[in-house]
């Protein structure tokens, strides 16, 4: 606030405080003229109700005096009297910083373990899992699902299985920190029949059968020309590129012939956002703990549901 508004506020406070104090002193001392019967002469309901005189109750007077004193103490300690900062130098910024720091201190032992102990060990500790689950729910479940089974609508991989698009171990942490960007190009320039042939071939890669063997053979030839550079000659994928293994039963997007066809025609550019700006090292590790624990947690969940 500039000086004008600061003085504006100060004057209003002083005026208001003085007025209330003045009224408290004067109005409580005013002698109210009474009649012989002890009433004031104020009447209601045609004289059946007459107003008497009572002193203000002591508690009321004390609370009023207390409030006036409180105002002085408050404005001395806290900001609010114009631009004054108050003797405590209190700010809402500092209050939240202190609260965060106090919490960090309270949790420091836990976070020390999180940073030092191996992920597999942490994944067996209920106190660690509690925090890990919250972080996962807030940051990861939107795409990968509460139980980590992924989502084929947006190509979010299953985190509870053994299959890792970009490799396991440290690569998982790298994926979280820096994000990933899928680069499956569109093959929309191929003829529809060609796309269909490739889709048929890819469909059979994990051992599934289709009646049209010739389409599969035509598809294989096209696959070796257009797809093998990333997905490998046998369709086994390439973790360095994030090219999916096409020979397993795990499908990022739909694994049906039409689903594969759509992927080929439009391409897929699945995006994993980068989290290193949002999450600290220990928070990242907590999420790794949750991912590690997911298979066991899901097993327990399934057992509970019978």
């Amino acid at each position: 606030m500039n000086d004008f508004w600061s003085w504006w506020v100060i004057c209003l406070i002083v005026f208001n405080w003085s007025l209330v104090t003045f009224l408290l002193i004067v109005a409580t001392r005013v002698k109210i003229p009474t009649r012989k019967d002890g009433t004031t002469g104020h009447v209601w309901a045609h004289g059946t109700v007459r107003e008497g005189v009572r002193k203000l109750p002591l508690w009321w007077v004390l609370i009023s005096i207390g409030s006036l004193i409180f105002a002085i103490v408050y404005f001395y300690q806290y900001p609010g009297f114009g631009n004054t900062k108050g003797s405590l130098r209190w700010t809402s910024d500092q209050q939240v910083r202190d609260a965060v720091a106090a919490n960090a201190k309270r949790q420091s032992n836990l976070y020390k373990d999180v940073l030092e102990q191996p992920i597999a060990k942490l994944a067996t500790r209920p106190d660690v899992l509690q925090g890990a689950g919250m972080l996962y729910a807030e940051n990861c479940a939107g795409c990968h699902g509460v139980n980590g089974r992924g989502n084929t609508f947006i190509g979010a991989p299953d985190l509870a299985d053994e299959i890792w698009l970009y490799g396991s171990g440290d690569n998982i942490k790298l994926s979280i920190e820096n994000g990933r960007k899928g680069v499956m190009p569109s093959f929309g320039h191929l003829k529809t029949t060609q796309l269909h042939d490739v889709a048929m071939y890819v469909y059979t890669l994990n051992g599934r059968k289709v009646p049209d063997i010739q389409a599969v053979e035509r598809g294989e030839q096209l696959f070796q020309v257009s797809c093998a550079a990333c997905h490998g000659q046998q369709g086994q994928g390439n973790q360095a590129l994030g090219a999916a293994n096409l020979t397993d039963d795990d499908w990022l997007y739909s694994g049906s012939v039409s689903g594969i066809f759509n992927t080929l025609r439009s391409g897929r550019q699945g995006v994993m956002p980068a989290w290193k700006e949002r999450l600290s090292e220990s928070e990242l590790r907590l999420i790794l703990v949750w991912i590690e624990a997911l298979p066991e947690l899901n097993k327990a969940e399934n057992a509970k549901e019978g």
């Binding site: 939240v96 910083r97 965060v100 720091a101 919490n103 960090a104 949790q107 976070y111 940073l115 290193k276 700006e277 949002r278 999450l279 600290s280 090292e281 220990s282 928070e283």
Partner: peptide, 14 residues
């Protein structure tokens, strides 16, 4: 006002 781990993220300061 980009996220920075050191700004107020708290609970987990390294």
């Amino acid at each position: 006002y980009p996220f920075k781990v050191e700004t107020l993220k708290g609970g987990s300061h390294e």
